[in-house]
Design a protein around this nucleic acid. Sequence first.
DNA 1: AGTGCGATTGACT
DNA 2: GTCAATCGCACTA
Length: 205
Amino acid sequence: MNAAALPGPRLLSRAKLPADTVALARFLIGKIVVRELPEGVVSGRIVETEAYVVGDAAGHAFRGVTPRNRSLFLERGHAYVYLAYGISHLLNVSSEAAGTGAGVLVRALEPLDGVPLMQSNRGVVGLRDLARGPGRLAAAMRIDRRLDGLDLCRRGDLWLGDDDRQNDEIGQSVRIGITRDAERPLRFFLAGSPFVSGPRALNRQ
DNA sequence: AGTGCGATTGACT
DNA sequence: GTCAATCGCACTA
């Protein structure tokens, strides 16, 4: 009831993050995204991710470093935020070693703390749709390019947390909304979670 | 300097 | 199910 009285999530240390992009995408399921806003803290449990691996034609790092994608080349655990379709911001977690361009797209959250604040960020929306989809997630948490390059392994405006909750089964499917390398099963999701985006056919086991 | 295009969403038939 | 919105940026020249 009183969220402020409960112990918040622990900061996820960089040492715990798998260096491998696919392993990181799997690992991040069940972890927590914490957003600190002037009005309060907003957080949610990650229920859906996609890996954009080294040499991936669908990945933004495919053609090397550019002003937009440079955060993908930071050491694992940094934010890569970009604007898609001129409409939606998308949050990624950089992966691999510094200098290697790869990352994990965070596609959906199960809202935890600050639900009213998320609703005010998006316009009032039901709990299930608050952060179901990468653009909605960023809007709910008020994430934009100003957070690009941020270290998610330090407490601050945006960081990754863990509360040791045990994961249910993790499902796997092809990635959503891409045209190149579209057959690779690099999307991961918490099986059975109503907060996962994507067509039902992809969310079956 | 000009052009084309999305790792999406919400509105609409 | 289809489709337009909207803009930063990568690409070409």
